[in-house]
Design a binder for these strands. Structure first.
Lengths: 212, 212
DNA sequence: GCGTAAAATGGACATGTATCCGTTTAAAAG
DNA sequence: CTTTTAAACGGATACATGTCCATTTTACGC
């Protein structure tokens, strides 16, 4: 687990110690869920199945992960960590080249579209499965996306690439609106836009910011 | 019920006859749900409560409305009809004044934001309560919003207000992304943007289209 | 090693959604 | 008015999520 600062955000909060058996169970649950989800799809697996496959009782499962959505979020978090590393590498490389901040933002949104497309079932289950919507929007994966976009926008503002009167937070949240699981599902699967079309549209939105 | 054409879309599909008792039960169910939702909130009411309050069995309730989400959609549809009438009146008035199509679009998005804000609990329950996401996105209320936005964009394109190389459908869907219930909830309640901020941001997005 | 407090465990249980199916009723034809 | 049949009815039931709590296990100070 990385515990670093980036753009002013602490990416990974420190955690309290976890008893050895508890940690082992956590891992077994995550691996069992991963396997079952791959075999039967997220919706084809219930919490009892996961508990049985992980050799723990339901009470234990729910102690580790208070809802199916939370379990999905934990799996997503694992996937997101790998993604974060490659993203940071590329953004650092772009920083070497002194690429415009808006260009870095465009690349990041592009990468995010591909990540979303890969993990759409898990993302939807996570959003659907938590009881309060804040549990999803405050989760580590979502917060990180959001803070990265807003951070890049703020830098673009400081460098004069976009007007200083803009509200970076609001613009960032609007750019991310199409990434919300249900919206993304609608755009890509129901409405049928390709990932390339969506990328191009978001690139255009970002470009429009500099002409405002 | 209106059965008219507008911008090429048949707003209300014709329905088959419904037996008298069935129609009466449908009305009783809708009125009971409306009352209970107002009293205890959508999440504080379950389907058994609604069946009892409407004096019908659960089987009857589920025959009329195959899920809680479908019931919410039916209630939304009623609300949306009234909204549609006022919207069409205003758009007609703007047509008299020969207002630019993008200006009409901005007004429509504005109105939509206010409608969403008024009906957020029902909208979220509708989206959450249907089993397949298409049932929400294909529903009459959502389709009408979408077709209206896309229709206005197409007219703006024909009149040269925006580039003819634009994809009106894609742009329309992206403009509507912040209106999806979960996204709107996040923007307004979790993130705290006022309706005025959201209106202004969407207006700016529309304005940016003409400068592209 | 041993005792103890705190944490973890697991299965029975509560709650809510949605289905099944035997029974009843509406409405159209003779 | 009677017959007929498709539709509507309603409550028992299935199924999933999430909670509770009596019991077991761990880790730590002695």
């Amino acid at each position: 687990m990385r515990d670093e600062l980036w753009l002013g955000l602490r990416v990974v909060p420190l955690e309290k110690a976890e008893r050895a058996d508890a940690a082992a169970n956590r891992k077994r649950i995550l691996r069992a869920a991963e396997r079952l989800f791959a075999e039967r799809g997220v919706d084809g697996v219930n919490m009892v199945d996961i508990a049985r496959a992980a050799r723990v009782g339901q009470g234990t499962l729910y102690r580790r992960f208070p809802s199916k959505g939370a379990l999905c979020l934990a799996l997503l978090d694992e996937q997101m960590r790998a993604f974060q590393n490659t993203v940071l590498d590329t953004l650092n490389a772009m920083a070497q080249d002194n690429a415009p901040w808006l260009e870095r933002l465009q690349w990041f949104l592009d990468a995010l579209i591909r990540f979303n497309a890969m993990h759409i079932p898990l993302l939807r289950a996570a959003q659907h499965g938590v009881e309060r919507p804040e549990q999803f929007t405050n989760s580590a994966p979502f917060s990180w996306e959001r803070m990265t976009v807003i951070g890049l926008l703020r830098e673009a503002m400081r460098r004069g690439e976009i007007s200083p009167s803009c509200d970076a937070r609001l613009i960032g949240d609007l750019l991310l609106a199409p990434m919300h699981p249900e919206v993304f599902y609608f755009l890509h699967y129901t409405s049928g836009y390709t990932l390339e079309q969506l990328s191009a549209a978001l690139r255009a939105s970002v470009s429009a910011l500099s002409r405002a």
